[in-house]
Computed example of a mutant assay.
Amino acid sequence: MLGLSVPAVHAEEPLKVGFVYVGPIGDHGWSYQHDQGRLSAEAHFGDKIKTTYVENVAEGADAERVIRNLAKAGNDIIFTTSFGFMNPTVKVAKQFPNVKFEHATGYKLSDNLGTYVSKTYEGRYVAGYVASQMTKTNKIGYIASFPIPEVIRDINTVQLALAKYNPNAELKIVWVNTWFDPGKEADAANAMMDQGVDVILQHTDSPAAMQAAERRGAFAVGQASDMTHFGPKAHLLSVVDEWGPHYINRIQAVMDGSWKSSAMVEGMKEGAIVIPGFNESIPADVTAKAKELIAGIKDGSVYPFTGPLKDNKGEMKVPEGTKLTFADLEKMDWYVEGIKAEIPK
C-alpha cells in the first residue's frame, strides 16, 4: 500500500507590531495607557499579531537604536509614542521603506510614516473649569514636562477656562523637564502647595502629584490614565487617553493592505479622550456644567481656541471670529493672556 503524502498546512505568520515607550509601563500615566492600547490590540486580534514593546527609552540616540532594532527584527508596523522620538523615527523610516511607522504627537510625515495625536487640550479645558470652581485659594498649579507645543497648548487651555469661569484664579507653572520622575513631580507638587496652590494639574506621568495632594488635603487632576485610586479624596477627575481603538484600526489597515500615511487627530468626539467620572465631592451643578462642556466639545459648540485671543504680552494672536486650526496648535509657542510667566527656552 502506497502512503499518500499530505502537504503541511502552515498557519499564516502573525503580523509583528512594535511599540516604543518613553517611560515604564508601570508609570500609571502616558506609557501605561499606550501599553493598555497594545493589550487591547492583542485581545482583539489574538494570535494574528505578535507584539513587542521596549520601555524606558530615552529620547535621542537611544531611541534611534531601539527603533532600528525593532525594524531589523521584522516588525511590520512600529509605533513610537513620545514627541522626542520624532527625528529618530524619521531617520529609521527612511532606512526601512517596507516597514510602516507611526509617531505619536509629532508632525513629520513620509510615505511609510504617519502621525497620531489626541486632543488632550479638550480634557484639560474641562479640568480647568472644574479647578476654577473647586479652588478656595484661587491658586491653581500645573506641573509641566517640556516646553513643546502639546504641553504649551494644554497649559493655555487651562488658563482660558480659568479666565472664563473664575477670573480671580491664578495659574502657577513649574517645569520639571522630565516625563516621568516621581521624586521631581512630588517636589513640584509640594512646592506649589507650600505657596497656597490647592488644585494641581499635571503634564507628567506618575501619580506622585496626586499622592502628594491626597496627603495634604488638596485636589488634583489625573493624567493619561484614571488615577482615582492614588488619591480617592484628592482626585477630581482624570483626562484619560484611549489608544486601543487607534491601534486596532491601524493594525487592521496593515493587514488589509489599506494602510496609508496620515496625520490622525482624535479627541472626545472619537472617544480618544475620556473623563471617566467626577469626584462625589464636586457640587452637582459643577459636575453638570462639566458634562455640558464635554457635550459641547463633542458637537463643536465649545472650542477654547476661538478669537479674540491675546498672548500674555498683549499682542492679538487670534482675531474675533477666527479659530485656531490644529495645524496652528501644533506650532503653539506662546502663552495666552493671564499667564504671568515666560516659556523656558
Results as ranks from 00 to 15, higher is better:
41 A>N: 08
291 K>C: 06
79 F>C: 11
198 D>S: 07
20 V>S: 00
320 E>N: 09
193 M>D: 00
153 R>E: 09
261 S>D: 14
78 I>H: 03
305 F>M: 06
211 Q>Y: 07
131 A>Y: 04
279 N>K: 01
203 H>I: 00
92 V>A: 14
280 E>N: 06
184 K>T: 07
269 K>A: 15
279 N>C: 00
237 L>F: 08
148 I>E: 07
163 A>K: 03
80 T>G: 00
323 K>W: 00
194 D>N: 08
153 R>W: 13
99 V>T: 13
164 K>Y: 15
140 I>H: 04
21 Y>A: 10
75 N>Q: 08
47 D>W: 00
138 N>V: 11
110 S>N: 01
125 Y>F: 15
221 V>F: 08
38 R>S: 09
228 T>L: 12
5 S>C: 00
27 D>M: 00
86 M>Y: 04
227 M>I: 04
30 W>D: 02
301 S>H: 02
90 V>L: 07
233 K>H: 08
28 H>Y: 03
154 D>T: 02
31 S>T: 12
65 R>N: 13
331 K>S: 04
93 A>E: 08
91 K>F: 01
35 D>N: 15
290 A>V: 14
2 L>F: 11
329 L>A: 00
298 K>H: 05
282 I>H: 04
282 I>F: 07
306 T>N: 15
226 D>T: 13
254 V>N: 08
262 S>Q: 14
113 L>P: 03
272 A>F: 12
211 Q>L: 07
215 R>W: 02
324 L>H: 04
43 A>W: 14
328 D>N: 10
336 V>F: 15
329 L>P: 03
196 G>D: 03
278 F>R: 02
304 P>K: 13
251 I>K: 01
73 A>Q: 11
203 H>E: 10
68 R>K: 15
240 V>F: 09
312 N>P: 02
155 I>F: 01
32 Y>T: 09
91 K>V: 14
81 T>Q: 01
134 M>T: 07
310 K>Y: 10
212 A>H: 06
156 N>F: 09
202 Q>I: 04
15 L>Q: 05
55 E>K: 11
48 K>E: 07
138 N>Q: 13
54 V>C: 05
289 K>S: 03
144 A>C: 04
76 D>E: 05
94 K>V: 12
202 Q>H: 05
128 G>Y: 05
249 N>I: 02
33 Q>R: 09
125 Y>S: 12
200 I>P: 00
65 R>L: 13
277 G>D: 07
263 A>R: 06
270 E>I: 10
338 G>N: 02
308 P>R: 10
95 Q>D: 15
184 K>A: 08
